[in-house]
Design a protein around this nucleic acid. Structure first.
Lengths: 131, 131
DNA sequence: ATTACAATAATACAATGATACAATACACTT
DNA sequence: AAGTGTATTGTATCATTGTATTATTGTAAT
């Protein structure tokens, strides 16, 4: 990892990290599945607090470029989310639904039970969001 | 054992194991007296540290579902099912629903989409059953 | 100067992994 | 049958990972 930080540039450190990691991924220098240095490793290397690196990693994670896993490390995302097309999305939903239906049925629940269960959860989330 | 782990789901690995084993017991896929894979077997199969599996087993043990015995292995508890099974069924359903809701939401679908998806599948199955 | 806010750091925490250990089973020898 | 060595079980402890919360710092607006 040859990330360099310019402390005087005015650009936030985490932004600089985000930008450079993103560039390395896009350019292919970092490939899917590759492990990034740990937040503490990179932090000491850059002489920066590790929370700052963690912040950069979190942003990259939320944008779908990398996958941070507590206790394991952070990795380049296997299949860039941006390429997930509409039909793939539908197919993914179908797979999810099928699994839910199958496993729920195996537990002895019927379709109304399954709907009611997610209904209840969705309502609860709505409640929390308001407060 | 067809346990699958999603390293990116944000849910702790040990919880994923707990949930899936619980479901297999409640659904009858695993019967009293059945031996579970050893912590090391399951761990290598899931590409996970065996302590993580051990943690899941310990939780299941404490909840009375299984019996872990040092030097022997872990087994499904002989008669856990009767009274508790009803609440366990509910808890398993809740876990299923939560996962479905979370993953579906992550794909950008709303509650109505999720309901529609299982509705469609359920209808299709109904069709097949008639013919 | 004061206030407000963003960036960074400090600290405590939760999940996972590495390593060494203890208990049991089992084959083998006697 | 009893003893012994080894492999296989789960357990315990600690290191390492990312996460969450709070405090500090610096900068710009008033």
């Amino acid at each position: 990892m040859k990330i360099t930080i310019d402390f005087r540039s005015g650009l936030p450190i985490y932004e600089q990290i985000v930008e450079q990691v993103r560039r390395m991924v896009v350019s292919g220098m970092l490939k899917p599945g590759d492990q990034l240095p740990t937040v503490r490793q990179l932090a000491t290397e850059l002489r920066v607090n590790f929370n700052t690196v963690a912040r950069a990693y979190r942003i990259l994670d939320e944008s779908g470029l990398i996958s941070t896993q507590q206790g394991r490390g952070t990795y380049i995302w296997e299949k860039p989310v941006g390429e997930v097309s509409q039909t793939l999305r539908q197919r993914a939903l179908q797979a999810l639904a099928q699994r839910y239906l199958e496993e729920g049925t195996q537990l002895g629940f019927g379709f109304p039970d399954l709907v009611a269960a997610i209904q209840k959860l969705a309502d609860a989330q709505e409640e929390n969001r308001k407060s």
